[in-house]
Design a protein around this nucleic acid. Sequence first.
RNA 1: GGGCGAGUGGCGUAAUUGGUAAACGCGCCAGUCUUAGGAACUGGUGGGGAAACCCGUGGGAGUUCAAGUCUCCCCUCGCCCACCA
Length: 1003
Amino acid sequence: MKRYNHTTIEKKWQKEWSKKKVYRTEDSSTKKKQYVLDMFPYPSGAGLHVGHPKGYIGSDVYARMKRMQGFNVLHPMGYDAFGLPAEQYALQHNIHPRKAVLENVKTFERQLSIIGLSYDWDRKVNTTDPEYYQWTQWIFLKIYGSWYDTTKDKAQPIESLVKKFEKEGNKNINAVCEENTPHFTAAEWKSKSQKEKQDVLMKYRLAYEGYAEVNWCPELGTVLANDEVVDGPDGKPVSERGGYPVEKKQMRQWFMRITAYADRLISGLDTIDWPENIKEIQRNWIGKSEGAEIKFQISNLKFKNSLGEVAVFTTRADTLFGATYVVLAPEHPLVEKLSDHIENISEVLEYKILVQKKDAESRTDATKEKTGVELKGVSVQNPVNGEKIPVYIADYVLASYGTGAVMAVPAHDERDFEFAQKYKLPVKHVVIPSIIDTMFPPVEGQEYVDRHTIHALVKNPKTGLYLCLKWKQFPWTTLVVGGVDEGEDPVDAARREVQEETGYKNLKFVRTLGGVVKAQYNAAHKKQNRVAFTTGVVFELENEEREHITEEELAKFEVTWLPLSQVKPCAELPEWIDRIDVPEKAYLPYGTVHDSGEFTGMTSEDAKKAITQKVGGKIVTKYKMRNAIFARQRYWGEPIPLSTDKDGLIQEVEEKKLPLTLPNVASYQPTGTGESPLASVSSWTKKGYETNTMPGWAGSSWYFLRYMDPKNKKGIASKKALSYWGQVDMYVGGAEHATGHLLYSRFWNKFLKDIGLAKFDEPFKRLRNQGMIQGTDGRKMSKRWGNVVNPDDVVKTYGADTLRVYEMFMGPFEAGLPWSTENIIGSRRFIERVWRLGEKVTSKKLTPEENVYQNTLHKTIQKVTDDIVSFSYNTAVSAMMIALNEMEKSEKVYKSDMELFLKILHPFAPHVTEELWKELGNKTSLVKESWPKADPKKMRDAEITIAVQINGKVRGEVKIQPENTETEVLEKVYIMPEIQKWLTGQEVRKVIFVKNRLINIVI
RNA sequence: GGGCGAGUGGCGUAAUUGGUAAACGCGCCAGUCUUAGGAACUGGUGGGGAAACCCGUGGGAGUUCAAGUCUCCCCUCGCCCACCA
C-alpha cells in the first residue's frame, strides 16, 4: 500500500470534483429537495482562521449525507460585501472598496477551496454586484410602496390605502401607522396638496422617512442600529465594529416599519426548529407586553381649571389605587403645552436640557441615581378614586416607550420606589401577599372573621434577640401579637400590646415592614376561620424598664428573647423574616388587592381587568423593539432608489431603470458631518437622488432566495424556483446574529410572503449555531492576542480531512472550545488507520466467525445517520472510531463492509474516502453513491452483558441472551459465587429487572 | 438587577433520557519493533487500600430498589438584555 499523502490526494480530488461539477444543483428535479445553507460571510481582509470553517464543515457534512440519500441538495456560498467592515478595510488600506472586496473574495475562496466543501459555486451571489442589488433595491421599493393592514394581517400596496382615503378618510382604517396620526375625512384627503398627501402616506409606508434620535458614531461617520452598539470597557456605548464612541443625535433617516410584524415575528418562533436560546433572545428583543393605557385628568392647582389629560401605560392596572404621582419623560410634549401653568417652568426646562445633554453620554445606565423635577402648579387626578397627585418629569421615564408617561406606584415598582424614597413621596401598599397557614388551615364550613392585627418585632440591640412570648397553654412561642382597635394606628396598637403583655414601655419605633400581610388560619378555640391583616412593626428596646403586668397576662405566657429564626408557629412569619434584615423595597409579585375600594380582595389578575374597565382604560400591546433605521451615511452600500424633485416630492426610480448603480467617486471617506459622501457627488445630487445608502443588513435579508435562481433577470427568482425550494431546511451560522440578521431576514421574508413571492412565512426551518473556536489560550482568536491558527497551515501539515474530522470531533457543535494543537493528532491517526485498513480488504466473503465487526459496523451506520441529522458530530466520529477499532481486530475486512464504512465516513473526510473507494476498484464517485442503511438483523446482539446489583450496588456481571426473562436471568445469577456471597443468610425482598440492562436484588 | 445556560478524570468530552459513570480522543505509564524516536503497534491509566472493599459527576438535603440525570436550597462560571412601566 502506498503511503498516505494527503496533499496529492486532496488536490487531485478537488480538481476532479470541480471539473466534473459533481456538486451541481439541479434546477428542476422530480427529486425531493434539501436546502442546506451557511450564513454567507463578509469577506474581510484578514483571511480565515480555523474557527471560520467550523460551521461550513458542519453544514457540508449534512449536505453531503443528504445528497447521498438522494436529495437534490442546494448548498451554495456567496458574499455579503457591502457595509462597514468592507468599507473600513478599504479605508485603512487606502484602496477602493470594490477592489478590496474582489481581492478579499479571492483569498477567501482559495482558503475555502482547500477544505473540500461541496458548494455549487455556479450559484455564487455577491451583494455588491449590481445584478444582485438591483433586486435589493426592487424589494425596497416594494416595501416603500406598502402599508400594513391589521385586519388582513399582511402588507398591502399603498395604492389600496389611497383608494380607502378617497372613499372614507382614515378614521376607520385598521393600519399600522405613526402614533397620533390626525384623522381626516375623504373630502379633507382630496383637498390636500401632493406634498401633504405624501407626508400622510409616509406615516403608513413600511419603509418611510422620519426624524429620530439615533446612535451616531462620529468616528465611523454613520448611524448605527441598536444591535450594532455595544457597551465599551468603561460602560459607555461604543460601536460594535471598531469600538468607537457612539452618541445620540436627531437626524433625518429612512426606517423600516418592522414593528408592524412584531406579533408575527413572535408567533412564528413556535413553528421553527431553532435553538431555544436564540428564540428567547428574539422574544426579549421584541419585548411584547400587554397592559392598559389609562388617562389622568390634568388641572391647574390654583384655578382648578382642566388642562386636558395625560395617558399612561401600565402592565399593573391592579395597583392603580397605589399611584401616588405621575411621571412624564422630560421630552413629553405636555411639558411644553403646560408651560404656562407650571410655576417652576425655568427649573423644569433647565432640567430637561440637563437630561438631554446627559443623554448623549449614558442615560441607559440603570444603576445610576434617578433624578427628576416636580411640575409645580399642576396636578392630575387618579381616575379610579379621584385623588389629586403630583406630576414629575424624570430621566427614568423613556419618551420612546409606551406613552412616554407612567403612573408611579412606589409600593409595587422598584424604580418608582427608589424615586419616591429620594423625593419623599408617599408609598401606598395596595397588593399584599396572601398566606394560608399550613398548621391550622381554615376549616370548611366555619365562619370567616376579618381581624386587623400587628406583629411587634422588638429587638434588644444589645443581644440582637427578639422579644417573644412562650405560651403556657400551647406548645409554641410567638412574637408579641395583638389586635388593632377600630381607628387605631398599628404602631400605637403594637406599643400597647407590648406594654400590656410584657411590661416593656420604652420602645423606639424603627419602621413598619412594608404593607400588610393577609393570612388565613383557623382559631380552633372559637371555631372560627380568621383572616388576619397584619402589620409588622419593628421597635428597638431603649431600656429594660417594665410596667406592672396583670395576673391575667402572667397566666398566659412567659417573656423570653429568641433569635428570629427560632420563632415558628405563625403563618405570616416567613414574610417578616424575609423583610426584617433588608431595607424596605417594592413588593413586585401579584397578590391580593388591598385598600382599593370595591376591588379589595380580588386577585391581581382579576383586578387588572376590572380596574381598567372601570376607568375606561384601553387594553394595549406595546413592544420594546423599535422600527429599524434603514440608512447609512456612507458610500459603500446599495443606493436607495428614490429621488426628490424640485417640489420636494419623492419619486421612485422606475423599475426598469434599476439597478441604480453606485457612482464612482474620488473620495469615499465619511464626511463626518452626518452627510453621506454621495452628497458631494454633483452628478448624483443633480438628479435629486437620495444620498444615504442602505445599511449592511439589506442585502443579507433576502440572499437565501436569490440562490434559488441566482441569474434570473426578471425577478428575485422565478416563481418555479421559489416554490420548488421553498424555505431553507437547515441554516448554520453564528449565534451573534440573533437580533440582527436573523430578525431582519425573517421580517423581509414575511413581507415577501405577503406580496406573494416567498413561499413560507418563516425563511429558515431549522437553525444550528456553531460554537466559536478560541485560541489555544482560551481567548477569542485574533491578531491582537497573536493566537490565530491559520487553516492553510493545518491543511498543509495534517490535511483537510484531518481538519474536518477534528473540528467535528472536538466537542459539541454548538460549544465554544479552544483549539488544541495536541488533540488534532488523534484525528490524523484515525485517518491514517483508515488508510491502512485498506490493506486488510478481501473480496472473499467472511464467515460469521471471522466477521467480528459486523454487529458494530451496522450499529455505527445507524448511529452516524442519526447523529448527522441531530448535528451530534462529535459522537458520530467517536462511533466511527469504535467501528474502526473493531475492524482492525479482524484478520480481514470484506470489501463491501469497507465500502459501507467509507460511505459513512465520506461526509467527514471526503478526499481520503474517495481515494480508497477508487482503490477498491470503483469507477464511480463516492459523492453520488447512496447512503447505506443499517441492517437490523446484523445490529442484533447474540449475547449481552448486564450488571448484577445487590441493593443498587454493582456486584457482578452476567452474560445473557437478549430478551431473556427475569426468571432466566435469576437462574444464572443465583449460582454466581460473587453474588452468592452477598445472598447467603439474607432474605431476598425484591428483584428489579430491567430488560437488557440490569438486575437488582434487594435484600 | 432580570432572562437563558453550564459545572463530570491531568485535558477535550460521553452516558441509550432514572438503570454498570467516564465511551471516544489527547496526555501519561509499561512493553514490542527500531541506529534512533516527538513514528507505529500492544497493554494499562478516576481516587484510597495489601486485600476484602470503600469513596467518586461544584456543595448540602430529599424522592427512589436505583440519581450525573428528578425536587428544593447554596456556591461558581458563561452568554444575552439592561430604568421598556
